[in-house]
Computed example of a mutant assay.
Amino acid sequence: MNSLVSIIIPTYNRAHLIGETLDSLLAQTYTNWECIVVDDGSTDNTLSVLKKYKEKDKRFHYYKRPDVSRKGANACRNYGIEKSNGDYINFFDSDDIMVSNKIELKLKKIFETKTDYVISKTIDFHHPSSNEVFLSTSLNYNFKAYPLNHYNYICQLLNWLTPDALICSKLVKQISFNDKLSRGQEYNFYTKLTLLSENGCFLNKFLTKRRLHDVSIRNQFTQNEVDKHTVKLRVITLKEIYSKTPKNVKRWFVANIIKNITRVNMILKPNEELLLITDLYKFYGIKSVVYYLFSRSSKYIFGRNEFVRLRLKKSLK
């Protein structure tokens, strides 16, 4: 077991934190790795921090996101994929910490099970003013309840985070992160991965520590904004996989899109609603448009649309 593992880390103004992340790589019990850090245009001293680590260890590589690429972590990850040389790839974030045997355990699991990728678990941590470390879990992985397959993932019966997967690079290089997404990119990416291969396995261990910050990005959005983003995420993802995904997955996506957009009185601009209706028609024909319009009307007139929501999944066949 001497495979090269590429660890791809996008970063932006994390000079005060990325050192801890890189130190956790140096502490890995498995040593045949390369770390590719892609800078998204930092204005702090990230460059000087990385120079020190590159001088200390040649396994660290530092790149700046090309100007022609869209700004954001997803474009950085895609550029990191281009620059990677590993047999396996693990994405990571520039403020998180790896447990010291993370890579070793995951590689061992892949070779034992002869799978294309392995999924471990992440635990959240934060340092309050007392510098005491608090740990908590924020994700119900459901590894024991459901088998790993494409349908269970897209329905979110199974869920995991971006750094949890160690993946055969041959698979990773057939897909990419959608750089138009600022949130939900892991759902989009792993939907495409599980469609490409269901030959994965779970490692029921917490091997990543995710740093919690004082201000959560998620908490900055209203429920209406969250619902709109969910609809956008589902539409974008369905467009990418439509020609290859099974019919039951397409049916679930269309039902979920309609359900989310009519769950609350979501306000859409006329052009947004027209685009959505057009997409629904392309995805599932006139039936999906009729259900959408009926569900919207039911919500506005009666204040509820439970009947439509309950019947929708059975009807879209």
Score class of each variant (00 low, 15 high):
V308N: 13
K106M: 15
N178R: 09
D164S: 13
I81M: 09
N74A: 15
Y79A: 01
E198R: 03
C201K: 09
V5C: 02
S297W: 14
T237F: 00
S100W: 10
L312G: 00
T245N: 05
T137C: 12
I81F: 05
H127G: 00
F125R: 06
T191W: 04
K106A: 12
S136L: 06
M266H: 04
K51F: 01
K314V: 03
A73Y: 02
L193M: 08
N188D: 15
V290W: 08
I167D: 01
N74W: 01
E272R: 12
K114T: 14
Y153Q: 10
F206S: 05
Y300V: 15
S129D: 08
V118P: 03
I167S: 02
Y151P: 00
D95G: 04
L293A: 09
F189T: 08
V49G: 03
G86S: 02
L47K: 15
S197V: 04
I9N: 00
S197C: 06
K109W: 09
Q220K: 15
S298Y: 02
Y53L: 02
D214N: 14
N188Q: 08
Y300N: 14
T21D: 06
I217C: 13
Q185H: 12
N101C: 14
I236L: 15
T43A: 15
E273V: 05
K58L: 14
V133M: 12
V118S: 07
K58P: 07
T237D: 07
Y146W: 06
H150I: 01
K108G: 13
P246W: 05
L212F: 08
F206P: 02
I110T: 03
L17V: 07
P246T: 11
P66Q: 12
